[in-house]
């Protein structure tokens, strides 16, 4: 009886929850195929159509912004992956050094720091640096990339650190025992084993940069508008259907990145569980 009630209740709660999360995005995706100029009027006679997507291809401003965002996201992801991996290594490996707690807190603080604050403080820093040492000259790709690395490296550091926390140190000792010097041990044993974590950190950093708006607003200069900034400024002048198409493409990009990152992390987790089971089962 209560079982029957639950069997109705659970799916409907779930349906409501998913609707809450995804109806807005699905509506936007649906309207991106709308033929009408009016965003909220569905032209059932001539829809669906891909005309707004082809219109995007002819919009130089959008193409430039997309290319800029893509370049920044690539640079950011790579920079954040390298720095974040180093930070994760230090956090996981160097034991209890002086100031470890402080370093941990400082590394993870950007995760919860209000973006407005991060953006404003970075802007102030860049202006001050330009005045004193003349670099970075003006604001543009450089300042955007540095700003994005600043907040996304924390995510990489946390992912790499948690992978290293379950790392069997005897693997590195075994490699050393077999004659490998520390650099070889790192390149041939440690790095390949934490590579999935670094790759998923890289993808996460890429998507974080790809859709960042607030921090970019602060540190971008004239002529260096990222894709989210272009969308935002267009919407302020009124929503047009090509924005729906553009936003749909952005959602797609982010979804692909997040899905790959999740799959990598899941697979790695399963592998670790299997290794643990093997080790325990052998006893």
């Amino acid at each position: 009886m209560s079982h029957a009630r639950r069997s109705v209740l659970v799916p409907s709660v779930m349906a409501f929850g998913f609707a809450f999360l995804y109806v807005p995005i699905l509506a936007m995706i649906g309207y991106s195929f709308n033929n009408s100029r009016l965003v909220t009027v569905w032209d059932s006679a001539n829809s669906p159509t891909l005309k707004w997507y082809s219109a995007l291809w002819r919009n130089q401003q959008v193409l430039d912004a997309a290319w800029l965002s893509f370049r920044i996201a690539l640079l950011n992801a790579t920079g954040a992956a390298i720095l974040g991996t180093l930070a994760g290594l230090v956090l996981a490996r160097f034991g209890r050094f002086r100031g470890r707690t402080l370093f941990t807190a400082l590394t993870t603080a950007p995760l919860v720091m209000p973006e407005v604050i991060t953006g404003l403080s970075l802007l102030l820093l860049f202006v001050a640096m330009e005045q004193t040492i003349g670099w970075p000259a003006g604001r543009g790709v450089t300042t955007l990339t540095i700003a994005h690395i600043t907040f996304s490296l924390s995510y990489v550091a946390v992912i790499v650190q948690s992978r290293l926390a379950g790392f069997d140190l005897s693997l590195e000792e075994a490699a050393m025992d077999l004659g490998a010097r520390p650099v070889t041990v790192f390149l041939r044993i440690t790095l390949p084993l934490i590579a999935p974590a670094i790759v998923s950190g890289w993808l996460l950093a890429f998507t974080l940069s790809w859709d960042d708006l607030v921090i970019s607003q602060f540190v971008a200069g004239p002529g260096s508008s990222t894709l989210p900034m272009v969308i935002f400024s267009k919407v302020r002048l009124g929503v047009t259907p090509d924005i729906n198409a553009l936003a749909t493409l952005m959602v797609l990009t982010v979804a692909v990145g997040v899905v790959i990152a999740t799959v990598l992390l899941r697979r790695q987790e399963r592998r670790r569980e299997r290794d643990l089971r093997l080790a325990a089962g052998a006893d």
Binding site: D168, E173, M176, D177, L178, R181, R271, A279
Partner: peptide, 20 residues
């Protein structure tokens, strides 16, 4: 003498085989 320079090898309790 560092571990990687000793004429000594070790078989670990967990075997420590390189999983990759």
């Amino acid at each position: 003498i560092a571990p990687y320079e000793r004429p000594v090898n070790m078989m670990f309790q967990s075997y420590a085989l390189f999983p990759h």
